[in-house]
Write a protein that binds this DNA or RNA. Structure first.
Length: 243
DNA sequence: CACGCAATAT
DNA sequence: TATATTGCGT
């Protein structure tokens, strides 16, 4: 169902010059624009609404990887990852599904890096490799920390990444309903987020960062495409309260 | 219940 | 092709 008519990710119409200018544009998403049908029979609780397929952009995956990296392999379970990512609209299933693929990817990498050498994600599934290769994989992922006998590690050739077209942005393309997913991160201060995004809901959240700079730090984590470890690390420390 | 993974569905 | 969903064991 990936809808043939659905463009792979919004063509970066504006910006995203081929040469450079990453452009720290804070808007990596469109405003949710409600179409006519929208909720059809009224506004159903997002709970039961059929959400559009999540499109895992490199940026989104970056957050995923960072979350896992900071959580540690052991604590990196779907629910925790989801919460740490703080991406509104993200469900546990979304993360779980991708986490599964990601683990397979890591497993393959382990096998390859240990024995052979060279390349990166070669010979695997073309499908997953490309996406995962866009994000640097923390070394600890490949070797869960040997208790005491990790003597010779050949060297871990991280997958050679090429430059791909990183378009922009939108994370989800709702082809069926007219919702655009992922807009801002949640201000799940204490529990979890409830409303995905949608519509013209009121959004009292804005008042949050208007007066208190707290969750705003998360926004800093974008800007560098590939090849960067993590900069939100520091940010995370600032708000180390959610735990 | 939440997790992890294979198989399957869309 | 990429995600989502399901099934089953833990």
């Amino acid at each position: 169902m990936w809808d043939p008519t659905t463009p792979p990710a919004a063509a970066s119409s504006s910006s995203s010059p081929p040469s450079a200018s990453p452009q720290p544009n804070s808007s990596e998403f469109d405003s949710a624009d409600l179409g006519g049908g929208a909720a059809s029979t009224g506004d159903e609780p997002a709970r039961t609404l059929k959400r559009p397929r999540l499109v895992w952009t490199p940026q989104l995956h970056k957050r995923f990887v960072d979350a896992v990296a900071h959580l540690g392999i052991k604590n990196a379970v779907p629910k925790t990852i989801m919460q740490l990512m703080s991406v509104d609209g993200l469900t546990r299933e979304n993360v779980a599904s991708h986490l599964q693929k990601y683990r397979l990817y890591l497993k393959r990498m382990q096998g390859l890096s240990a024995g052979g050498g060279g390349g990166g994600a070669a010979g695997g599934d073309p499908a997953t490799d490309h996406l995962f290769a866009s994000s640097p994989v923390p070394a600890h992922f490949l070797h869960p920390v040997r208790p005491s006998s990790d003597h010779f590690l050949p060297f871990v050739p991280v997958a050679a990444h090429h430059h791909h077209q990183m378009a922009a942005a939108a994370a989800v393309v709702g082809h069926q309903p007219q919702y655009r997913q992922m807009g801002h991160f949640g201000s799940q201060s204490n529990g979890h987020f409830e409303h995905p995004f949608l519509a013209r809901q009121t959004q009292p959240v804005s008042s949050n960062w208007g007066t208190t700079a707290q969750s705003c730090t998360f926004f800093l984590c974008r800007g560098h495409g590939i090849g960067n470890g993590s900069q939100w690390e520091e940010s995370a420390h600032s708000v180390s309260n959610w735990g």
